[in-house]
Nucleic acid binder design. Structure first.
Lengths: 237, 237
DNA sequence: CGTGCTTTTGAATAGTATCAAGGCCGGTGG
DNA sequence: CCACCGGCCTTGATACTATTCAAAAGCACG
């Protein structure tokens, strides 16, 4: 089903920010042994919205979008994740919270099932504390997003989406500028608007010299200029 | 400065959902001994937006609103909290995230400083895991709020605010109906709109027989009817 | 060199914030 | 006890922003 690859063990893994690295040596080996690792090609679902997840995924390399659709069929991007991030973990299994994860480029992802994960929690205090802190910080960010999105204009939300996308999945060109290859639709799903508005805002920002376009690829020409659009929300960024 | 009260020890405390109850007996006693406990009268700040917080607050009884103001002076309600909830804890001290907490009625609150808290994390695995789970669940709720608020109409957001307020700070009358005493302004700060729109929506819901008003106090006459307004977002509620 | 998808731009519409005024209620002081 | 005052609530009119619908242009693909 999934493409087979040479598994990279936790001991060899270069992703220093991975939470699993916070476990003690004995457990690092144990997790490395029992984890499941798969390389997902660009565009493929890592887990889908319908099916429940019985564990947690840790991204070793690559970028991922976490998506959620609503009743009306409208999809939005809950967050973007890159190497070292954790996803899919559910506090309670019975919760009904349909999210899916899609690889934005080739992504190597490790899966730990709930049993292994909880054993690791019980035996590795620092591991658990770090994940607790991670959630605490993510919660804070999410709350600020809530707060500011309620009072931002659409232009500001799009500017935010561009900065956010640049931070997580942006690639630097030869001049050191940030390039973003997400589609207008995907940016709209982050900003909470539609592709047309994103296109309008981008055109406007291009005219102001903040961005340049190479086909559908966005290049941030004036990073501080974009930040200035959001100066009222600086705590957020 | 704060009103003095007879401290209720953790051993005597009836708030079974409090996370501190998940520590082992030795630590329960230790926390009980070193915690700081204060009863805040209605309307008083428990901690304010300006000053940093060096620990975490656990609500023993009463209700609290957690607020955050933006640059433009607009305040909004980040979340409501009641007995057993935790607040004010920061993953990293250096973060600049100005939130404040205000008592909605007389509230008895216990404070644990960071040193005590982290010692407790290191020595009480189940305590740490439960708090991690709490954050995980809150994050999930916050993400769904983000997602749905981006596509709800104002009427729907107000309906949500009423249900949410009813759940956390609502009081039951003799008929078992939920009564809410928050002001229109406060509901607007939850719904991400303004007091006028809240008032319009409430009038409309009153005409439809969903609510009744006693002065400024809101009584939910037809709870399932209100839920039906949000049927598209049922995962959320 | 078409075909289909994404992007861009325009015009019409609908929804919401803002501004403004009047009503209700509780508190205060005469 | 009554009149006044101020805050909150309600309702209306207006202006504006953003969504939707529509259509044309650009780009990638076979």
């Amino acid at each position: 089903m999934h493409p087979k690859t040479n598994k990279i063990s936790c001991e060899e893994c270069a992703t220093t920010s991975c939470f699993v690295k916070r476990t003690n040596p004995e457990w690092l080996g144990k997790i490395s042994k029992f984890k499941n690792q798969v390389v997902y090609p660009k565009g493929q679902y890592i887990f889908s919205e319908g099916s429940p997840v019985f564990g947690a995924y840790f991204i070793q390399s690559g970028d991922v979008k976490i998506v959620s659709s609503s009743f009306s069929g409208r999809q939005n991007i809950v967050r973007l994740a890159k190497a070292g991030h954790m996803m899919g973990h559910k506090g309670e299994a019975k919760e009904n919270y349909p999210i899916g994860a899609v690889a934005l480029n080739d992504a190597r992802v490790c899966f730990l099932n709930n049993e292994l994960l909880y054993d690791a929690f019980l035996n590795n205090t620092h591991f658990t504390i770090e994940i607790m802190m991670f959630y605490s910080k993510e919660l804070r960010k999410s709350e600020m997003r809530n707060k500011f999105f309620a009072q931002m204009t659409t232009d500001e939300k799009v500017a935010y989406a561009i900065l956010y996308a640049g931070e997580i999945v942006g690639q630097k060109n030869s001049k050191g500028q940030i390039m973003i290859t997400l589609s207008r639709q995907e940016l709209a799903q982050i900003a909470g608007t539609n592709a047309e508005q994103v296109s309008r805002t981008i055109s406007q920002m291009k005219n102001e010299g903040l961005l340049s376009l190479d086909g559908r690829c966005i290049c941030i020409e004036n990073l501080t200029g974009v930040y200035d659009l959001l100066s009222e929300y600086e705590q957020f960024i």
